[in-house]
């Protein structure tokens, strides 16, 4: 395992009003590894993922990505980082319903200023890689849940990010579809060398990871034991 982690969260604290979501949470993600964040509902694992991905700003603590302090960055800088070096897959509702699947995958590239044609070329390559090229011209409302999530994975990977954040990516899928999405996802991420931070409460999904961290009551418990 490389000695220098790519993404480090140190002593994060964050509360929403009266409820404390994170309380002194620390975790490290190494380049290229697949880390599962597990824990019961309401433990703060999604919040931790949002902090790691620069979506949420913690009340206290620090998130460092490749030596840069995410928490000290301006919102526009973090947005730019999310566009180019980070990828996101959510449980549902992330695809723009008016755009075709192909256009949805091409969207992050176009947001980064790529030409329409170049963006569409990469996007169809990724759709093919995730075995959903046949739905390229359909709109998200016209494809199945599994296909939609594969499109979402393609969209997260199309910019060749260094970290992909996935929040219950198979949460709305049955086990067979969920397995296929996870297989394709993790294989594709490993191929591009992207690290994956995977929030899940399902052990069989977490089994696709290299390592897991358990979030409980806003703290991270990383278990080390003699094998």
């Amino acid at each position: 395992m490389p000695t220098e982690p790519l993404l480090v969260a140190e002593h994060l604290r964050l509360s929403f009003g009266a409820t404390t979501a994170l309380e002194d949470a620390s975790v490290a993600v190494h380049a290229g590894e697949v880390l599962a964040l597990m824990g019961p509902s309401g433990s703060g694992k999604s919040t931790l993922l949002h902090c790691l991905g620069g979506i949420l700003h913690p009340d206290a603590g620090r998130v460092t990505y490749a030596g840069r302090d995410l928490t000290a960055m301006h919102d526009s800088e973090r947005s730019a980082l999310r566009r180019s070096e980070l990828g996101f897959v959510f449980q549902f509702g992330q695809l723009v319903p008016e755009l075709t699947c192909l256009e949805n995958v091409a969207l992050p590239l176009r947001l980064n200023g790529a030409s329409r044609r170049a963006a569409h070329r990469s996007a169809s390559a990724w759709l093919e890689r995730l075995e959903v090229l046949d739905v390229a011209a359909k709109r998200p409302g016209q494809v199945s849940g599994g296909q939609g999530q594969r499109v979402a994975v393609a969209r997260a990977l199309v910019t060749r990010p260094r970290v992909v954040f996935a929040d219950e990516p198979t949460g709305a899928l049955d086990s067979l579809n969920g397995e296929r999405v996870m297989q394709l996802f993790v294989a594709a991420a490993r191929e591009t060398g992207a690290a994956v931070v995977l929030v899940t409460h399902e052990a069989r999904v977490a089994a696709y990871s290299d390592r897991e961290a358990v979030v409980r009551d806003g703290r991270v418990r990383t278990v080390e034991y003699a094998r």
Binding site: A36, A203, A206, A207, D210, E212, V214, R221, V223, Y225
Partner: peptide, 24 residues
């Protein structure tokens, strides 16, 4: 007690990872 459970969970996951890899 929580550590007991977490340790066990880690062991379970380790085996599940192995099985997942073998399955592929």
């Amino acid at each position: 007690a929580t550590t007991v459970l977490d340790t066990q969970r880690a062991e379970h996951l380790r085996l599940m990872r192995e099985l997942t890899r073998r399955k592929e």
